[in-house]
Design a protein around this nucleic acid. Structure first.
Lengths: 221, 221
DNA sequence: GCTATATGAATGAACG
DNA sequence: CGTTCATTCATATAGC
């Protein structure tokens, strides 16, 4: 269904765009050549580009659907929409891949996890860079892993351990349980014309899109 | 639902090349390079993707225009499209149901981000006080921001860029013999990869979808 | 199947 | 500046 498709799209997009290439200083986009080196800023731009297109397509299609429903031109237009969907769905599927769909996010193997936990237990909170490197080396033998993974893992582990700890001590004076009902949140409240969803049409569209009943689940391309 | 989708988009957008080393089997065959570049195939894929998106957007936009004209509903699709970039800033993104948490930490709007990235890319390190002041001034027009935010952003950006770089330059333990690649102990090479991007169609699309402020969709490189 | 939870990852801000 | 913390986002999986 739609949701799955989206996921796959995203995965593919991520995959395609996750092409690390650190930039030093070369990237000055002058001289409109066709020959270019991808800096990661550029990658980022591309990523944005595609993401935005994706989103736009999404909303356009949904909007279209909405309009179609209201009208009775559904037949013709709806078909168009479908075709569009297929159209831009297929190329992705065909072009890359199948094996790409694997690693969206690292998951420690049991062995790795055990090792990690063990290190963590030893108390030395933050394994310094060097340690991490070594650790990664070792863990690599038990599965795909990177230093970043290890680093993140420790960060998260610590943070969450901490939070859990403090969470046990917050049960007293818990008279008011719903601190979320308040509305005074002002920060981006400034209805900046470009960045707000104050567009009536779009708002309506969003309402439509966010309605559980009419959500993606029913979306049929 | 939609909110979720937007988040995914945001994720994509935010994904600042992570996990550089991605040494899935491909890496081996390709040679244990430190430097990743876009392969031709990847470029082709990207080109296809964008071209397809462009087409889709075009058609959808037309479709929508048609419908809008017919039923005198909103004719402002372009505006809607524009604001799609606003995922993050939407104050009412309470898809989870009830916790409209106010964000207490600054989050750059897409526009701001782009501007910042641009400045960063120009290479001149962290801007001096004066520059920051000016920049902040400018950025304020695209959303709430403070000098501290700007300063922090540059600090972080640089630090992480650097770390990523050093991270990329490891993990070469099992490098196979690669006759065609250059010296192993090479600093991050600047690959001469070509990115021929005829995005004429894209530009057309941009003309329509692009708002002056929301510079997405620009390949200014 | 759809929501709830656990957790990997991203990032603004703070610290030394 | 480099490193660390805190918060948040997004996804994979478990539970309903």
């Amino acid at each position: 269904m739609m949701g799955e498709w989206r996921q796959q799209q995203q995965q593919i997009i991520n995959q395609n765009l996750q092409n690390p290439e650190e930039d030093d200083g070369v990237g000055n986009g002058n001289g409109g050549l066709f020959v270019k080196v991808m800096t990661d800023e550029q990658m980022e731009q591309l990523r944005q580009q595609i993401a935005v297109y994706t989103t736009i397509c999404d909303q356009l299609v949904d909007l279209h659907k909405q309009l179609s429903a209201q009208q009775d031109l559904t037949g013709r237009l709806s078909v168009s929409g479908m075709r569009l969907g297929n159209f831009y769905c297929d190329p992705f599927m065909a072009s890359g891949g199948h094996k790409i769909t694997s690693r969206q996010r690292w998951t420690p193997s049991p062995v790795q996890l055990q090792i990690l936990e063990q290190i963590f237990e030893e108390g030395n909170g933050t394994p310094c860079k060097q340690k991490i490197k070594e650790l990664t080396m070792e863990l690599t033998q038990h599965g795909q892993i990177s230093e970043t993974n290890v680093y993140n893992w420790f960060q998260n582990r610590r943070a969450r351990s901490k939070r859990k700890q403090s969470m046990t001590a917050q049960n007293n004076a818990e008279s008011e349980a719903e601190p979320e009902v308040e509305s005074p949140r002002d920060e981006k409240t400034k209805p900046e014309d470009i960045l707000s969803f104050d567009n009536s049409a779009l708002r309506a569209e969003n309402m439509y899109l966010q309605s559980p009943e009419l959500g993606f689940g029913n979306f049929d391309w």
